[in-house]
Every structure is written in C-alpha cells, then in structure tokens.
Design a protein around this nucleic acid. Structure first.
Length: 572
RNA sequence: GGUCCUGUGGUGCAGUUUGGAGUGCACGCCGGCCUGUCAAGCCGGAGGUCGCGGGUUCAAAUCCCGUCAGGACCGCCA
C-alpha cells in the first residue's frame, strides 16, 4: 500500500513519486485551496500540501500519492527531520475517518494515566510510546544476542505449574479436570532452570514472563519479563561476567555505549554506608558511624547499640515544620525518633544540644565532616533499624529521579544466608533455600552463628533499583539437607514441597549458578522513564486493574460450575 | 494492612486557605475568513452531575464525614 515511510523522506528523495500511509497529525488551512497536513506514521511526520477543500481531520487514516519536492526557499523547518521536503499531493484516499482523540497526542501534556490506559491504542501512537516500544525491542534483542554469543540455549518453561508455598503470593488457575486443584502461574522459572542443569543444558536462558500477586509500584507489575539464566560448572564470577555482558549489550543498543567493569560492593558495606541492599550510589549523604562517640553518653536517646548519622550539605535552612514531618516519617519507618542538628556559626543548633557534652558534639561534627550551613540527622537504635531508617531518609532527602546522572550499575555480593529469625526461632532465608553458603563460612554455619553466614548470592543494582538477583545453588544432597534442617523444614516437608528437585539431584547434579534480572526495569531506565508502565504496551494500574479491558471481571455461574468453584459473598 | 497526594467542560490547569451566581486561562472541538504554514493566524460558537453520597449553613467546587478512582511510598515482593 505504500512505497516509503513518512519520516524517512529527505532531499535525496526529491522528484520521486511516493505513496504514503498514516494518520493526520495536524492540519493548517490557508484558504479554500491550500492546506498543510502533517502525515504521521511510526517513523515520524512529513508535510503534505493538499487542496483545502478536502475534509481531512485529526487522526483520519490516509493513503496519499504524490511527488516529493523541495520546500520553497525560507519555508524549510529545521526542527523536523523531513523539514526540507514536502509532498505535492496528487491523490488522497481516506482509509478511515476518526473521532477527535480523547486526549492530545503530543508529548507536551501529562494526561491522566487512566485515560491513557483506557485508550491505550491511541496512546501508543504518541512518539514517546513508539520510541519506548522500540527501545524495549532493542533491549530484548541485544540481551538475546549477548546470551547466545556466550553459548546459552533458549529453553521455554511452562506457565501452568505447581504452587509452592515459598516466596511471593501465587496467581492460581483452577483445574477443570481435577476440580478443587489449582495450577500456579510461575513467579520465576527457578525450579525448571535448575532441572535443566540436571538435564545437561549447561547454559540455559529465557526471556520469561513471571507473575507475582503482590502490590504494584512504579517498578512492579503483576506480570513482568525477566532475563532468566543458569549455567553449570561455573563460579559466581562467571555468572557476573555473563550478566554484565548482557546488560552492557543492552545499554549499548540504546545509548550506543557499552558499560565498563561494573563495580562490586559487599552487602555488609552497602548496609553500613547506604542503609540498603540496593544502594543508590549516584549521590553522597552516606551513613556515618557514630556509635563510638557516644559510648559513655548521658543522653538517653543515644544509649543504644548503634548510632549513625547523615550530613545534608546546606540543609540548615530546612524548616522546623519539615523537620517535624521527617521525624514523624522516621517513626513510621520504625525509629524511636530523629535527632536533628543545624550547624551554625555558634555551634550546633538542636533541641538535644544541651544533653550532649562538648566532646561529644565535637566528635560528631568531626566524624560527619560537618560544615556551617549543614543539617545533621541522627538515629540511634538497633543497628538494623538505624540502617533502614537512615537509608530511607537519605533517599527521601537526596535521591534524584532514577533516570538522571547516567547509568550507575553495582553488583552487591556476599548477601547473608539468613536475614533474621522468625518467632519460632528458625532462621529466615535471605534468598531461596537452594542458595549455597559461602565456602569460607561453612564452619561458621556448623558452629551455629547463623546470622554471620554469608551466601554466594548477589544482586545487580542500577541507580538504586534492584535489577535482579542470583546465586550459586546447592547441588549436594547433604548440604541441602543440612540447610533444610537449619530452616526447620523436616525431610517429609522438604519432599512434599521440593521432592522432584531433590529427586533430580540424586541422579547426578552438576554444580550450577544463575541469575535473573527485570527487563522492564532495565528498559525503563534506558528509555529515561521513571515508571515501568511507560515501557509496557498494556500495563495495569496500581490496584491491578486494566482500564482497557476492565480486567479483572467476574465469570458466569456455568463457568464456575465447570471448575467446581463457588464464590463467597464479600466479607464486611 | 498503612501513610501522603490528586479528582473542576474533550485535555491540561487556576479557583478551595478566608463559603456568596459554574468565574477564569491555555489547548482541543464546531462554523467562518485566510495561498507558505509547521504548537499557523484572525473572528464567532458550542461544551459542566466541580468524582460520588451524606452532613453543616440562608448559601458549598470551597467546611465536615463517608465512599470510589488514580498516583507515590511503607509493609509485602524467598
């Protein structure tokens, strides 16, 4: 139906007879027999010169034939790629008429997102989303290419699987053939990829759709895409290298520039310096250790196992109101309170200054490298709480939008094997229960100092977003049973939950390790978007609804009967 | 489960603090004029359940309560 795309035409094409198809982007009338129409397709827009008598309105779909000609002197438009030429239109066919669009299609106004989603087919015509879908396709293709170059084989795993009680909430699908039984949709292909390793697929990857029924966020949707990979006979360093290569290829495909070596930081260091396991290293305001300065303090609030602070450069002019708000916020995050100090020419201006000795004030000012005009914020509590609260406070006060300041990738390594103890005193695994403990910490594990045991687990972080995580897996039955027993999972329970995996391991399991990272998150940041919905063609709202199709919807009784289901009345 | 913010012609906003006639701005839409515009210009016009329900008041877009929808975040996401 067409010979060219609108946005491709240049001076070189002058004199050619072309046929174009697209939408009316904009129309400018000049009397009865002259009108300019910008015709838009995926590639961009080009100006048509048409007879003003033709009724061509916004978003009409046209097929036009005409000759490419150079624009008259002084009428070229430098801000348009096709601005040096125009189409002397000989024939216009209206392929479809259109009602006026429900919102402007230019990228200048921020339209209500529900409206955009309800008419997503219109929204997708906008340059922003056209570009984002292209970026997404390029990222996917680059990642695929990088994995194949490294000898990985793409394997598809099932969407209807058995529910396991671990991890996130499953989406479930009722079984018709076995009423009362349910499939689960995969949270990740984790078990299947490990089975692939036992199956001799020594380098597996998949760009896999994963589903988790947990609350949505700017960086979370119910369903999302992961680059999922696993390899046999490899070390942690090998996996980091594979994945670094893949994200570098993705970055290069979008920005034209690959990544250098991605820096590494231990989980412990990330927590101490940034109060987070996904530190945003684009800005300072690091957490500073102050516990030593207050070991003998008379000030009750600082008689805690840990005191840390952050320095907000030039923050002394933050209002009292704002400080009160921040204090409230810190309490909601779990702290007992927040101590603030303004650094002035006359020393520290703070409601607690009178409770501190001169030595203490001097020590904290020195340790924090405080300068006149700064604001100091201190939290005292258990170490875990201090890190958490100050980490969030740091982000609240200093964090730039996720898309700013370039791409700051970071490997966070040496995660703890257990993140704490539950009410029954059993350790809570920080990753999944198949994560291999750190070789050097096997002794610590046997000694029972569980919380000191590191694991061979690692995360990839980009500008403060967790892109993904992975680990070296346990492939030895004896180590796995030991971990299960430490976790308080009896062998009967272990077999009920993971029997097929344990069975598989009895038939010759190679040492293996893997990783998975979120394609949507990577794409969003590479596309300069702060929200993954902008790089997903048909996303859901924060409440999990789809304004376009109205999903989720009730199903009729006949359908329920067939599945052996009955819906309870809503709970008051 | 929680905290905070938002909801006003088709779209984006202002108006809400301090109650007084659906008031205003920009874009879009419809009609007219216009032969070199490109976010065209000029003239005219249409278009409203101020998210919804209740309350206070002589009077509510505005104050109060509830509710719905949306967004950001905390919890949650092995």
């Amino acid at each position: 139906m067409r010979t060219d795309r609108c946005g491709d035409l240049r001076v070189d094409d002058v004199g050619r007879d072309v046929t174009l198809c697209g939408w009316v982007d904009r129309r400018r009338e000049h009397g009865e027999h002259l009108a300019f129409v910008d015709l838009r397709d995926r590639s961009g827009v080009v100006q048509l010169v048409v007879d003003g008598a033709q009724d061509l309105r916004s978003e009409y779909v046209l097929q036009v034939s005409g000759t490419v000609r150079e624009r008259p002197a002084d009428t070229a438009n430098d801000s348009l790629a096709t601005g040096a030429v125009e189409i002397d239109t000989a024939e216009v066919t209206v392929l479809s008429v259109a009602e006026p669009p429900p919102f402007p299609l230019d990228d200048r106004t921020d339209v209500d997102e529900v409206l955009r989603l309800r008419h997503r087919y219109v929204d997708l015509r906008r340059p922003r989303l056209q570009r984002n879908l292209e970026v997404r396709a390029r990222v996917t293709s680059a990642v695929r290419g990088a994995m194949e170059e490294q000898g990985f084989v793409e394997v598809e795993t099932p969407m209807l699987i058995a529910s396991t009680p671990e991890g996130a909430r499953d989406f479930v699908v009722p079984s018709r053939k076995e009423p009362g039984s349910f499939y689960a949709l995969p949270q990740s292909p984790q078990i299947f990829k490990q089975l692939c390793m036992v199956g001799g697929v020594d380098r597996y990857y998949q760009i896999a759709r994963c589903l988790r029924d947990e609350d949505l966020r700017a960086d979370r949707q119910f369903e999302f895409m992961q680059l999922d990979a696993e390899a046999s006979f490899v070390s942690q360093d090998d996996v980091l290298s594979f994945i670094s290569h893949a994200v570098s290829a993705a970055a290069e495909a979008v920005t034209g520039e690959g990544l250098g070596e991605i820096p590494r930081m231990s989980w412990q260091e990330a927590q101490e310096r940034f109060g987070s396991d996904k530190p945003d290293i684009r800005f300072g305001m690091e957490l500073v250790e102050l516990t030593e300065a207050f070991t003998d303090t008379e000030f009750r609030a600082f008689q805690a196992s840990c005191v840390k602070g952050i320095r907000v450069p030039g923050g002394a002019d933050v209002s009292r109101n704002r400080l009160d708000d921040l204090t409230e916020q810190c309490k909601r995050w779990g702290a007992k309170g927040l101590v603030w100090m303004r650094v002035t020419d006359d020393g520290l201006d703070s409601p607690v200054a009178k409770f501190l000795t001169d030595d203490e004030k001097a020590a904290l000012a020195m340790t924090l490298e405080a300068e006149v005009g700064d604001l100091l914020l201190l939290v005292a509590d258990e170490r875990r709480t201090v890190r958490h609260v100050l980490g969030l406070l740091r982000l609240e006060l200093g964090r730039p939008p996720v898309t700013e300041g370039g791409l700051h990738f970071l490997w966070v390594v040496d995660f703890p094997l257990f993140e704490g103890l539950d009410e029954a005193g059993n350790p809570i695994p920080a990753h999944h229960p198949f994560t291999m403990p750190h070789e050097e910490d096997l002794e610590t594990l046997e000694r029972g100092d569980l919380l000191d045991v590191r694991s061979q687990a690692y995360d990839l972080v980009l500008n403060g977003w967790e892109l993904g995580s992975g680990s070296v897996r346990i492939h030895r039955g004896d180590v796995q049973e030991r971990i299960f027993s430490i976790l308080g999972i009896g062998s009967e329970e272990a077999h009920a939950k993971f029997g097929f995996l344990l069975d598989a391991f009895r038939y010759g399991a190679p040492p293996h390790a893997g990783f998975a990272f979120g394609m949507d998150r990577l794409t969003a940041i590479l596309a300069g978007e702060e929200n993954i919905r902008e790089v997903i063609a048909y996303p859901k709202t924060q409440s999990g609804a789809d304004p376009l199709t109205s999903a989720p919807t009730p199903i009729d009784d006949r359908h329920l009967d067939e599945l052996g289901l009955r819906v309870l009345p809503p709970v008051e």
